[in-house]
């Protein structure tokens, strides 16, 4: 794809990925064929900050995990009331990273 187009994508969506992954994502996008641009444009990435707020408010019910697509972990968290509070606290620290990882996985499946 064109450099300008890729850079525009990175500026708009860079915050949805891990900082150390951004350079790799950019390189991968440059190699991708122009025909995939339409699909890439339609991808909806989850905002890590929103997930952190969800985790803060409904973390013990596992809603945060459901939202990022970890249904199994979400059910586990729901049934154990957020791992008796411990898991919910751990996820407060992990959910932003997990969201960025999921966003990267989503992009990788397309490109």
């Amino acid at each position: 794809m064109e450099v300008q187009r890729v850079d525009m994508f990175i500026i708009a969506n860079g915050k949805f990925f891990e900082s150390h992954q951004v350079a790799i994502v950019r390189d991968r996008l440059l190699e991708v064929d122009d025909s995939k641009w339409a699909i890439i444009q339609t991808l909806q990435f989850k905002n890590p900050t929103t997930m952190l707020i969800v985790s803060l408010l409904a973390g013990s019910l596992g809603i945060d995990r459901f939202m990022i697509g970890d249904t199994g972990l979400g059910i586990g968290k729901l049934l154990t009331c957020g791992g008796l509070g411990v898991w919910a606290i751990i996820d407060l620290f992990m959910i932003m990273g997990a969201t960025r990882e999921k966003n990267n996985e989503k992009l990788q499946t397309v490109i």
């Binding site: 891990e18 900082s19 150390h20 606290i89 751990i90 407060l92 620290f93 992990m94 990273g97 960025r100």
Partner: peptide
């Protein structure tokens, strides 16, 4: 990177929280 430092720092905070 920025997010790496954040995660590494969180590993220590984890035990405190």
């Amino acid at each position: 990177g920025e997010h790496e430092s954040e995660k590494a720092s969180n590993s220590y905070l984890m035990s405190l929280v």
